[in-house]
């Protein structure tokens, strides 16, 4: 009887079945709307070029084909190169930025550090004020030499003050200060304490920051737009895709041909599905890893947004 009463109470406190059905429909429609374009792009990338030419992009193409994928990997070496660039930038950038962020946040977390207030303000202030695009660009290009090289695609994104705040909150909530004191009394040096004692405990926080950083590097095309003007082989996939927006011939120039040969080549090329092949190549790694890292990202975002 008591159990039944409790159950009834629970039922009372949830919405009516009718209202719940409405909720299912509204949220379901939006959720579908969020992934349908991705499914659509996959379908287009497997559509035969002839089908696209006759009925346009369609969920049900007249004919399927893997020509675009084969063409992309056989005839367009720049795609391999760009894929490599994307991976290289993401790996190096993520490692460096996560390392720097963890070190800085650790220092801000230490209450016994003398200049804590200063360094805290030093990073925070850049969140609310900056020099703007023009001075930043000129400093990067002319003073720091971030120009037509890999460094230009990595260095400007290395520090994000918001991540420092998230990381510091992680340290605060997961690493007890007594632990550091104990380690220090036992004669452990600062770096030793950080890497051997603190890091293992703060691993989930570091993982979150690493994931956020990896996404930023993987998704970036803006830096390439700014700093890679001539040495286009360094373009990551995203930048290649950006370039293709207004310049479909870019693909045929990529295949190394010039002039009439390029036009000839362009005619044979499954241009329309090729563009979508690039999109698929970019999104698939994210889509595959996404279910696994979603948890960490949610944890990190909720920690970071609670309070700086």
């Amino acid at each position: 009887m008591a159990v039944k009463g409790k159950k009834k109470n629970l039922r009372l406190n949830s919405v009516s079945p009718g209202a719940e059905a409405v909720i299912y429909v509204i949220l379901g429609l939006f959720a579908l709307c969020c992934i349908i374009p991705f499914v659509f792009v996959i379908i287009i990338s497997f559509s035969a070029e002839s089908s696209i030419r006759s009925i346009g992009y369609s969920f049900i193409p007249q004919a399927w084909s893997t020509d675009a994928f084969r063409y992309a990997f056989r005839k367009l070496p720049q795609i391999w190169r760009s894929y490599f660039n994307s991976i290289f930038i993401t790996v190096v950038g993520t490692a460096l930025s996560t390392f720097m962020c963890a070190l800085y946040a650790y220092v801000l977390y230490r209450p016994d550090f003398k200049f804590r207030g200063f360094f805290n303000f030093f990073s925070f202030f850049t969140m609310i004020f900056g020099g703007g695009l023009v001075p930043t660009y000129i400093v990067c290009k002319q003073v720091l030499g971030l120009n037509e090289n890999y460094a230009a695609l990595i260095v400007p994104l290395l520090v994000n003050p918001f991540n420092i705040i998230i990381m510091r909150t992680f340290f605060k909530s997961s690493v007890p200060l007594e632990l550091i004191e104990a380690a220090t009394i036992d004669g452990s040096g600062e770096y030793n304490t950080l890497f051997r004692v603190v890091a293992p405990i703060a691993k989930p926080g570091v993982a979150t920051i690493a994931l956020l950083n990896a996404l930023v590097f993987w998704n970036d095309w803006y830096l390439s737009l700014l700093y890679i003007q001539r040495n286009k082989v360094l373009q990551p996939l995203q930048a290649l895709l950006m370039e293709l927006q207004n310049n479909v011939e870019y693909l045929s120039r990529m295949s190394g041909q010039m002039g009439a040969a390029a036009i000839n080549e362009a005619a044979k090329m499954p241009t329309q599905s090729l563009r979508m092949v690039l999109v698929v190549l970019i999104v698939v790694p994210i889509a595959c890893a996404y279910p696994f890292f979603q948890r960490y990202i949610v944890a990190g975002l909720s920690v970071g947004s609670v309070k700086g």
Partner: peptide, 23 residues
């Protein structure tokens, strides 16, 4: 020692955020 930990990010901020403010 703690300063050396803060240094990489602090130098980055100085060069890529504070220096451009002069601009």
């Amino acid at each position: 020692v703690l300063l050396t930990m803060a240094a990489p990010t602090a130098i980055w901020l100085l060069l890529l955020r504070y220096l451009p403010m002069g601009g």
